[in-house]
Amino acid sequence: MMTSFFAGLLLAYAGMAALCLGMERHFKQVWQHLPSPGQRQALRLAGWALLAGSFAACVLAWGWAMGPVGWLGQVSLGGFLLLMLLPYWPRLAVLLPVFAAPWLGLVGVIQG
């Protein structure tokens, strides 16, 4: 359960980060240049796909009844964490899921 819980959290954060980067204002805030229309499209698609992945992880962790409740919480809190990090460390904020992924693997191994 812990593995899917943290996977859900990570995917929720990553999804929100991708959706955020899909907005011109924030893409520029992080990378100092404007995204191409294709990039924006791809980021938005990726964002929704990651959120869907997060939903699946929550259903795995809690089942169909509690999963959606937990998912909304994870997406909200993931978005809030991103909001708080973005103005201070923009690149770290959007790359955080990449750094966090190996830790998730560790949790998975410990939990078996």
């Binding site: 359960m1 812990m2 819980f5 962790a61 809690w62 509690m66 409740v69 937990g70 919480g73 994870q74 909200s76 809190l77 809030f80």
Partner: peptide
């Protein structure tokens, strides 16, 4: 849904953090 007794500690923490925010 309000009492948040379900879903174990992970859910409890989500409620706690949401409440703080």
């Amino acid at each position: 849904l309000h009492f948040a007794q379900f879903g174990g500690y992970p859910m409890r923490w989500l409620y706690f953090l949401c409440g703080l925010v």
